[in-house]
Nucleic acid binder design. Structure first.
Lengths: 197, 197
DNA sequence: AGAGTAACCGAACGATCGGTCGGTACAAGG
DNA sequence: CCTTGTACCGACCGATCGTTCGGTTACTCT
């Protein structure tokens, strides 16, 4: 039971590097050679820590999905009027996107070429469905305007939130913090941009 | 000057096939072999029509960018109060996204690995900036609520519109048409989802 | 000191990558 | 008929892909 370590890479620290490169170059556009350069170890050494390229992807998207599904188990998402639960889930989703930005970014870009990617797409659809049901309940309560298609609005709300991964960067001097973004998303989605609303 | 043609593939018809496959598998995840199978001609024959894989990408994103920039030259985007121009551009952007869906989809997914991709990203940023300036003008007119950050709201509005490429599909029985989507986007963005707004 | 093992490496694997090459089938123009 | 040029193909190129293998190094434990 010896624990000899020289530089002590773990699957987790390797994952941090890999996810960064995956997001920069795209999963398919990233070679194991790219990862080895970025991590500072040889290509073959990576296989000492993880089974292969696809395992890195699976670990990353699992982390993102687990964080998202956990939102639905929180009290704010399970108790109270439907529209308040929708607001809560929206706000928390923004917070999770920001907190787990690289992992969620990778998740939202999966195409479906491998079994792992198709599994990720399936779980994503499941999460979307859960929130869509919440929106539907809020509409049934009469808390959402009746002149917009509720499924369409759900898609757009999701699209707005998910677009965060395309431009949000943690604030090294001047950027927005998660709370501010979440607040603006909720204001825009529920009360609109116009002055006199 | 003989014009002997057997099956008559042109760079344009080839592009239609290529863009579809690029969107299904991702650009990096698509091999010339994939394209040749989908087009029904041999891999080497593709090079009789186009210079290579990257030219197909360049043609596709050029088409998308030209359509988007053309919006800014239309009368509705150049005349009238700023907020009305913003609404016009928003509506027209949705229409263009729907009309040129596969090409815009490809454009919005480029990562920046090649020179062509970096050029596309640059032109995209230029378009975004032009619209961001419009939003800023509307805010200066006092037509947008003062309690949201205008740059942040611009990003979110764009994110919502661009997310169309991730889920919108032309309506083979039951889907939404472009006008309905554009209307809902404008309603949601400017007046919000809530009932009593 | 010696044994055991985690961490790592260079070299090479077969497969596939984007792209090239020499040639063939075929239709139009003379 | 024969030439010309387009559309197309199979075979192949060097490079790179994800992965494997046989070691070597460096550390801990006894």
């Amino acid at each position: 039971m010896t624990t000899a370590r020289r530089d002590a890479y773990t699957p987790e620290t390797l994952l941090t590097v890999a996810v960064r490169i995956f997001n920069e170059r795209g999963y398919d556009g990233t070679s194991m050679e790219h990862l080895s350069k970025a991590a500072g170890i040889s290509k073959s050494s990576i296989y000492h820590h993880v089974a292969g390229k696809e395992e890195l992807l699976r670990r990353a998207v699992s982390r993102a999905l687990d964080s998202l599904f956990a939102i639905l188990e929180e009290n704010g998402a399970r108790r109270g009027r439907a529209i308040e639960r929708v607001e809560y889930v929206t706000r928390r989703t923004v917070e999770v996107l920001v907190a787990e930005l690289p992992y969620v970014t990778l998740l939202l870009r999966v195409r479906g070429n491998t079994k792992t990617e198709r599994w990720a797409l399936e779980r994503r659809r499941e999460f979307d469905q859960r929130v869509a049901d919440l929106l539907k309940a809020a509409a049934a309560d009469g808390d959402l305007r009746a002149d917009v298609d509720i499924r369409l609005a759900t898609r757009l709300l999701f699209g707005m939130v998910n677009s965060l991964v395309e431009w949000y960067r943690p604030h090294p001097g001047g950027g927005y913090d998660a709370d501010q973004v979440a607040e603006t998303v909720v204001q825009l989605a529920f009360d609109g941009l116009r002055t006199d609303s």
